[in-house]
């Protein structure tokens, strides 16, 4: 069924409408015109075709966590320019100003239907939610706190991959976060990874695919290598729904696809099975 059209990553950063800002939104999938208030009430899911618009990290947190349960961790932590990489400092500053975020992830303690969690939510607006030292460090601390306090870990993934401007240090964040998850796993605590549009590269090849449960939002693109690279390397035509959530479900790579409107309830239901009985936040 072609309900969920594949979305391109390139279209994400661009403004798609020439309508007055903040009032009307055009669905990039079906073209429906939706007013901002309705779209917001529906957690930015199209009224007509159920296309899932990109969510910001703060919106995602208020959607998933119990009211007033979020307690942010490491709010001032930011990457430095370790490699002295051309233009990187200005780039980070620019995105900080544009998004109001320090880097591409928000982390904190919280509760989902009264289950104690630490949560990390990536924000694609910030340099394509690429993973550098700040993202790696914040997620690692959040996971370590979960291990120490016997909490579940929830990470909402979306990423263009590793942050090139931090060179090998960005690659090593894959190892660091996976190491923290190894200890959390050993402590027999649950980790739910939520894959959203798009999740690629080094993030897919580390914490994003390590969930006890891996859940995807409908229609999102998930992969290791980009479709262009695969096409250039293999000279093969890619299957029509290649690297979509639906394709991954068909191939046995994820546990389930859950629409945004049901995500919080689903997480709660899963944690009911996975956390020791009688533990509440």
């Amino acid at each position: 069924m072609g309900i969920f059209k594949k979305r391109s990553i390139a279209s994400l950063g661009k403004k798609k409408s020439d309508m007055p800002e903040g009032l009307w939104n055009k669905c990039p999938s079906c073209g429906a015109i939706i007013d901002e208030i309705t779209l917001k009430q529906r957690h930015r899911v199209c009224t007509k075709c159920d296309h899932h618009f990109t969510l910001t990290a703060p919106d995602r947190i208020s959607m998933l966590l119990d009211v007033d349960s979020f307690e942010e961790l490491d709010p001032t932590l930011e990457s430095t320019d370790a490699l002295n990489f051309k233009g990187y400092t200005d780039k980070v500053k620019g995105y900080q100003k544009k998004t109001g975020l320090k880097d591409a992830v928000l982390t904190g303690r919280g509760a989902v239907l009264e289950h104690p969690v630490t949560i990390g939510v990536m924000d694609f607006r910030f340099i394509g939610a690429s993973m550098g030292s700040a993202v790696g460090e914040k997620l690692t601390r959040a996971i370590e706190i979960a291990t120490a306090e016997k909490r579940a870990v929830i990470i909402v993934c979306s990423s263009g991959g590793a942050r090139m401007h931090e060179g090998i240090l960005s690659l090593m964040q894959m190892a660091k976060t996976s190491g923290a998850l190894a200890r959390h796993h050993e402590a027999q605590l649950p980790y739910i990874s939520i894959l959203t549009h798009p999740t690629t590269g080094g993030v897919t090849a580390s914490f994003a695919t390590l969930g006890d449960i891996n859940i995807a939002e409908p229609g999102c693109m998930i992969g290791f290598a980009g479709p262009r690279v695969i096409k250039e390397t293999t000279h093969q035509n890619l299957p029509p729904d290649f690297q979509t959530a639906e394709f991954l479900l068909d191939h046995g790579l994820i546990d389930m696809i859950v629409p945004r409107s049901m995500m919080r309830e689903r997480i709660g239901e899963l944690l009911d099975y996975m956390l020791p009985v009688g533990k509440t936040a």
């Binding site: 996976s178 190491g179 190894a182 695919t209 695969i230 390397t233 690297q243």
Partner: peptide, 24 residues
């Protein structure tokens, strides 16, 4: 790692991620 259709179908990302966690 090989960027190919079959590699993606068989979850190359998870194969790498799992090694990172287990080797630790």
């Amino acid at each position: 790692a090989y960027p190919g259709i079959e590699a993606e179908e068989r979850n190359i990302a998870e194969a790498i991620a799992f090694n990172l966690r287990e080797m630790m």
